[in-house]
Design a protein around this nucleic acid. Structure first.
Lengths: 181, 181
DNA sequence: TTGACAACTTACTAACTAGTAAGTAAAATA
DNA sequence: TATTTTACTTACTAGTTAGTAAGTTGTCAA
């Protein structure tokens, strides 16, 4: 599952095969089919684990009790540390690009994952604005969609243009949110 | 090439084959190999045409002489009309997601395309700020990367969550840029 | 009228794809 | 100790992939 997650973020659903995983593990193709009957089931389990992990994090007191600004920094750091610096891409973003060639169950999982990320970000932005640390106009839902879409896009852009572009985007988001009106 | 471009934006480089194009055209696989010796050459030609088209547009007086705000609206409209409403994705974004499994020549083309889009957006943002219609802090290059990455990401997000999300993001960008400081 | 050329088709290959069926060896369980 | 279960391997299938070689047909120019 670790390898499958890595491949998903690296090459996309259509970009890796059972053979790739088997080779890396030093086992045969069929060994993977024993644990996951289909590629759809394998990817489904990976997405589910990813979603569970995120829910676990945001419900943990270490993150739940953080100030809005620190929460946002934590969120950015997920993308910076575990994605951009390894040339990987957000799992949601990777799946969305191939959405039209994905099995139905994976589309649903992708949709739910994206909704969960958006919901948390929206709540955090709203909380920060009410407390007076974040400054932005309009609907928190739209601002959340803007930021998440930008993080997804920036990870992809970083592949072609280098990680400095990604860090510039994150810095710009911080500046936009914290600038006094 | 039209079909290849459409497939690239729809399924990605790894998501379509010569057979898909041949079937749609009512010809055989080999007929495509006659015009484009390899899949790499086909995709390369599509990207080159895409880049040429963009350069033609931005150098045309009808867009060149527009006010910064109208220029930006034109840029947004490319994404809204020809992408989001058809479930398609920005060509640059599609290629970046699969960047790690792309032939070297396509990686270069992808990088150059992204640089060209960014350069124009950066210049337009800078022009608008100097004239006093756009309001943002920091480097125009960072703001341009933020907006372009967000448009790419939002097109992908729209697949999972519907086009309304994409329109909300565009509206939020407009609001962010035009809000008086 | 002949010959060249463009745009194909037919027929193929080697490699890879997800997935299956049957057999095996070791470990856990009764 | 005997039996079941777990985690595989070996050996395979049917379908798809990009790509090739050789032959065919219609068009156009000399």
């Amino acid at each position: 599952m670790d390898l499958a997650e890595s491949f998903l973020q690296d090459k996309g659903f259509n970009g890796f095969s059972y053979a790739h995983i088997a080779a890396e593990l030093g086992v045969k193709n069929a060994a993977i089919h024993y644990h996951f009957p289909s590629k759809e089931a394998l990817a489904g389990a990976v997405i589910q684990r990813y979603r569970d992990r995120f829910q676990l994090w945001i419900n943990n007191a270490r993150i739940k009790d953080l100030a809005p600004q620190a929460k946002l920094d934590w969120f950015f750091s997920i993308y910076t540390n575990t994605r951009a610096d390894n040339g990987k891409v957000c799992l949601a973003g990777s799946l969305e690009t191939e959405f039209n060639s994905l099995p139905a169950s994976l589309r649903e999982q992708t949709e739910e994952l994206t909704r969960e990320l958006l919901a948390w970000l929206q709540a955090t932005l709203n909380e920060g604005r009410e407390v007076g640390v974040f400054h932005f106009s309009g609907d928190p839902a739209s601002k959340a969609a803007l930021i998440l879409s930008s993080l997804q896009g920036a990870l992809q852009m970083a592949r072609a243009l280098g990680t400095s572009k990604f860090h510039a985007v994150v810095q710009q988001h911080r500046q936009d949110l914290l600038a006094f009106a």
